[in-house]
Design a protein around this nucleic acid. Structure first.
Lengths: 145, 145
DNA sequence: ATAGGGCTTCCCACCGTTGGAAGGTCAAGG
DNA sequence: CCTTGACCTTCCAACGGTGGGAAGCCCTAT
């Protein structure tokens, strides 16, 4: 099957399939006599794997490791789990950062009249030497622990 | 003062100061006889404003709007508040996405033995035609359901 | 034969930031 | 006065992923 069909079947755009091949994430596809890339059902399954992993926020580098484990029949599930947990941690860290931003912004917005007068604590804070830094529970740890 | 000092005083790297100037976010700095950029205390305050806004996750384009309001003494605080609230919404949306990822990953990792056997529901899910998509409460609200 | 769609490669753009190379300038110390 | 080292200048490239588009080849159906 050609790249277009593989793209449709996997949910990965043709552009990205070529990019993944170019960067070595996936092996070079076979070629037809005319030079068209050809794909098998197995290839499509691999591409779907990649798309799903990206949907879970994995970076391409991590996906490479996941793919290696996927292909390795003598893998240890512990290695897979470890990757997943690193991903969870990374996501949680970013979430915590953003929650801290939201908390600060909400605090500032709360104090802003939001009318036609110019006075605004949001601008005042941005202008200040140091921010009010909402004393929120942003210190890494868990929001459900 | 030279760019290095302005960078130290504002927390924005010299590289980024030049970039912001180049892209028009900030006006062109003055120049010394030798061609060095020169900055005033006011400039440093502006740069600090920018850095603080970036710390709150604002994109450079939005920072441009904030700067315009900052400089406009007849601004309406409503406009500032509106920008802040758009930012809050954007952050919340991204947080929700990531929380949904975390929920899925946790669910999968839970089912993974994490030992030296190869069987792993995480890989199984990535491989599957469609994911288990944890039926989590990812619609905005709580991470502490 | 021709039209259309698909495929190929190539280059460019985004965003924000960092790095480096090659060269000019300044201030301090020998 | 000259050297040294820190600073400044501009320019060019890279990162991660993705999309857009141009120029040209291939395949299929009419």
């Amino acid at each position: 099957m050609n790249i277009g069909e593989a793209a449709k079947g996997s949910g990965v755009s043709a552009k990205m399939i070529r990019y993944y091949e170019q960067t070595g994430l996936i092996p070079s596809a076979g070629r037809s006599a005319a030079g068209y890339r050809t794909y098998t059902e197995t290839d499509v399954r691999m591409l779907r794997f990649i798309r799903r992993a990206r949907d879970l926020g994995f970076q391409v580098e991590a996906i490479g490791e996941l793919l290696a484990l996927w292909r390795d029949r003598s893998r240890h599930s512990a290695d897979v789990k470890q990757l997943a947990q690193a991903q969870i941690e990374g996501l949680r860290r970013r979430i915590a950062e953003m929650e801290s931003m939201v908390a600060t912004l909400e605090h500032l917005a709360e104090g802003c009249a939001g009318d036609d007068r110019p006075d605004c604590p949001i601008l005042a804070d941005l202008e200040a030497d140091q921010s009010l830094v909402v004393p929120a529970c942003h210190a890494g740890a868990g929001f459900n622990r």
